[in-house]
Amino acid sequence: MSTIPRVSSAIAGEPAHFGSVLAHQPEIAARFFELYGAFWGSDVLAARIKEVARMRNARVTECGFCRNVRFDKALGEGLVEEVVDDITDGYETSDKLTETEKAVLKFTDALIHDPELLNGDARTALQQHLTPQQIAELGLGVSLFLALAKALITMGLEPEQMDRTVLPTPAVLEAAE
């Protein structure tokens, strides 16, 4: 895995990072940030649930950038580090994660790793804990987390070193609406 950018920044004076590299394709960038802002802005599924799935994806896909970022909205909903620490192999036995979060993690593993993991019981549990609308939103989120992590890694945008960083939760900008 390379930590040397494979694409230059398209924004003068800025180093290569996801935003400055995506700026090579302004239309893609605009549509992505609209979508991502709307996804995080939707209250159909709690931000904490979305962040649990995002953290799992970060660990499985080995995305160091994703792994070190925390979104503030989920933090405000109680996703503290003691809980995040349990989003690792063996999460099924955690006493800090809720049963809903464990069902979400199983779905996340199935989508990003092995579809066989979503067997009868796991499928039933997911549908017991989430509505169809919530599952659709979760499916979008996990798909975006996965795709973006892979795009970021393969474009060489992994940081060599990065501290844990709390960022404002993505939102749709008023001007973009």
């Binding site: 494979r6 694409v7 230059s8 398209a10 590299v21 995506l22 090579h24 394709q25 893609i28 992505f32 779905f107 199935a110 989508l111 990003i112 579809p115 979503l118 499916g139 798909s143 975006l144 996965l146 795709a147 973006l148 892979k150 795009a151 393969t154 474009m155």
Partner: peptide, 24 residues
């Protein structure tokens, strides 16, 4: 080219995600 590689990276990663969403 660089802009093409950026789009290609996104399209390829989305194609992978779409397949996985279909498989579940």
């Amino acid at each position: 080219g660089e802009p093409g590689f950026v789009a290609f990276s996104v399209v390829t990663a989305l194609a992978d995600a779409e397949c996985r969403a279909a498989q579940v």
